[in-house]
């Protein structure tokens, strides 16, 4: 049922990987460029996208505005870079990586399940 030799994480301990200052500098540069981009993009109207589906007489639909989507995409990219390099996740154990992912999974659960209620209220009764 269990593997007697399954590895204890203690066995996986190692000297932390040292990231070079060069890498840090590149990341810093990318982050600054991304900041400038997101700031500039907000001055451009990227338009919107209407999604509407007619399912057996239900009108299910929503409108997607591109500006916040792009802004959040850039923010997520910046976050990923900080987490991977500044916070050394790229060089961390699987356990730490899993920890980070599970945190965001539950956070997205909170946001998406709550939002699902708000969005679907507009769909009306059965």
């Amino acid at each position: 049922m269990s593997e007697p030799n399954a590895h204890n994480e203690q066995g996986a301990e190692h000297e932390p990987h040292i990231v070079s200052p060069g890498t840090y500098a590149i990341i810093l540069l990318v982050l600054l460029v991304a900041t400038a981009t997101t700031c500039g993009m907000s001055y451009i109207d990227l338009g919107e996208w209407h999604i509407a589906i007619n399912l057996f007489g239900w009108h299910v639909g929503t409108t997607l505005f591109w500006n916040p989507v792009v802004a959040l995409a850039i923010a997520c990219t910046k976050m990923t870079l900080v987490v991977l390099f500044f916070m050394h996740i790229k060089y961390s154990s699987k356990l730490t990586k899993l920890t980070v992912i599970s945190g965001f999974f539950i956070f997205l659960g909170l946001i998406s399940m709550t939002l699902a209620d708000y969005v679907s209220r507009a769909w009306g009764r059965w």
Partner: peptide
């Protein structure tokens, strides 16, 4: 356990689909 919380809210006006 994290994805069942709205069953405390059935009569509070959450959407039917939810």
């Amino acid at each position: 356990g994290f994805f069942v919380w709205a069953h405390h809210m059935f009569i509070m006006g959450i959407s039917n689909y939810s």
